[in-house]
Design a protein around this nucleic acid. Structure first.
Lengths: 350, 350
DNA sequence: TTTTTCTGTGGGAACGGTTCCAATTTTTTG
DNA sequence: CAAAAAATTGGAACCGTTCCCACAGAAAAA
């Protein structure tokens, strides 16, 4: 069955010239007579010719396409990183294909293989919460496909990455809670597998220490980020003999789910319990009361990751395989204070 | 420069057999001696062989990959449709690549060409708000690449699609506003280019008519869905001599932006103005007060679209090109009533 | 034993494009 | 006007895989 796509051979036959010439005319090679080029371009246009990227990538060993793999996109974090990536990549003449893992390690491995089998030129990644084995990533490296990580970065891979200072941001967030007079600060942490979890918890611990607040293990719980579970953990916190007067949550969905539980119990935010989240998801400003949270420059993260990948791609072409420390870029965060931690001045004045 | 990828030829050479046999062993062709197959699979494994999808697609004229194009993914609507699509497609052994248009017509055309140049087997689409010309879609059809639309469907293309009954849903939403006693119901509509806009407005108009509420053109505005503009339009509504006592918004982001304006003006929701949105975005339950809205079965929409595409792909293989009316599937919506339209019983009782 | 039917394997074309090299044509130069 | 140089074109190899065809050897049937 003849394919319905026009090929350069079709064009060549019609014009009675060789396919080499057609190819040259279409790719803008200088050595084609103006007359010929015009004829080719016109016919190509009228036949709706469209280059076959499969054949091209196959023959050139490069596809001008990069992949981006994200663990999920139900929060606004990853989508807006992606927008930043596309921004830079499109300007550089690259195509971007997006893969979404649904937080499943298995999907991650198969998406990785998919991208490699399509011979993408490079990949930008944030791994799933389940990922503990990084072989599928080193495989890409062995194949000479540059990787750039963001947000969730494997500990022991020497790979370029762009992150925020999770430690510092968490430290500041907790200090803010202390500054408004809270002493029993709970922390709902993420899964141990994520660097972010560990760094943010360390920030939490060190902020407590700096202000001579003893660390209470009862007030720290790790969980797997499935927000249904937040109900259980928050109930646990609130049922303690002396319940916490503040919560630092690993991210905004967690914080928001926690708020539901607090409100359902008839407690007031922030009077009874102040709450801080992380990432400044779109919904953080919508919930009632507005959620104090650490803003991340998502689009910038995407743009920076894309630029780093372009660097890698350029270095690769130049065969610059010098083994050096992979670069890490750290972008600034900003604590956004909203009602969930706002001491009401009015109440005091009256 | 030798590629770093293992090929079947590498394997054939090492085992001193022909590449045909290697190919057969790897693809599970029956005519291979068990002994040979085992040797091939083992060596392939240890050499980390990974089939070259470019070569495969190129040679077989089919890629086992479908594309999905969405206008944006900052709201939760499209991401959750995508999850539904992936669900079905992965089970059917297809890969899914995602393209995002940022509501730009130009991106839509170039993403379409990208997908076609990669010879995807089919495409699921929701077009941008800017799209008025559908040539890039008919091009795909001429190439024999089946399309399935959802949510935003071109008017005059005979193409399979899955939608909700926008008319009916809007009708119900407005009737609900009338039921709680509202008479001056404003409508912030979307751009004229979208079918959804026209259907929902018709639902709005007919609900008014049914309840003998005269149509007031001052209370209906079309806008381009850039939420910054909502401020202008809402101010206009609220500054009318007799301002509206209810708002039916084209979608949830619009409704939520409108709520901001209303609250900033010191008016109460729903007492002064009741508000209804559309789609039941994740944020609809988070805003204060909770937003009444029309829930769409997003994951089902994705799954259904995927199943329809699989049908098309199957029909295509069987060379079943009978020209018939393309199927339309309509999925049910559900009006979710929250505080933004909830008459407070308590207040009455007291 | 001879013929027929399977099995397993190898060889080579095909897919659509790029690219290098050689051949041809055109232009320039002496 | 011939020779040299430059411009333009054609031919063929190549990329990795599938798949059809041919063929050898083994097993089954005659």
């Amino acid at each position: 069955m003849k394919s319905k796509y026009t090929t350069i051979i079709d064009i060549a036959r019609q014009l009675n010239i060789s396919k080499s010439t057609v190819s040259r005319a279409l790719t803008g090679h200088p050595n084609v007579k103006e007359h010929t080029r015009k004829a080719v371009l016109e016919l190509a246009n009228s036949m709706e010719y469209q280059r076959n990227s499969l054949a091209l990538g196959f023959s050139k060993h490069t596809t001008n396409t990069i992949g981006i793999m994200v663990p999920e996109f139900m929060s606004t974090y990853f989508p807006s990183v992606i927008v930043g990536v596309q921004d830079v990549m499109q300007a550089a003449g690259y195509n971007v294909v997006i893969c979404q893992q649904n937080e499943s390690y298995e999907s991650e491995v198969s998406n990785m293989k998919l991208l490699l089998s399509y011979r993408v030129d490079g990949i930008i990644v944030s791994h799933t919460k389940e990922t503990r084995n990084f072989d599928h990533f080193t495989l890409a490296q062995r194949r000479g496909v540059p990787l750039v990580f963001f947000n969730r970065v494997p500990d022991d891979m020497n790979v370029p990455n762009v992150v925020v200072n999770d430690y510092e941001a968490a430290f500041q967030a907790v200090e803010h809670l202390i500054a408004i007079g809270r002493k029993r600060i709970a922390h709902l942490a993420g899964p141990e597998s994520l660097v972010n979890t560990r760094l943010r918890r360390q920030g939490y611990l060190d902020a407590l220490k700096k202000h001579d607040i003893p660390y209470n293990p009862d007030l720290v719980l790790s969980y797997d980020l499935t927000t249904e579970k937040v109900k259980i953990y928050m109930k646990h916190f609130l049922d303690l003999a002396t319940p916490p007067d503040a919560l630092f949550a690993i991210n905004d969905p967690t914080a928001i789910a926690a708020m539901e539980v607090v409100k359902a119990k008839g407690l007031r935010i922030p009077e009874d319990i102040a709450i801080v989240g992380f990432s400044n998801d779109f919904s953080a400003q919508l919930v009632y009361p507005g959620l104090t949270t650490v803003a991340q420059p998502t689009a910038d993260i995407g743009r920076t990751a894309a630029e780093m990948l372009l660097q890698e791609l350029k270095a690769k072409v130049k065969n610059d395989y010098s083994i050096k420390k992979a670069p890490t870029v750290q972008l600034p965060t900003k604590l956004i204070i909203r009602e969930s931690t706002m001491v009401k001045e009015k109440t005091k004045k009256r």
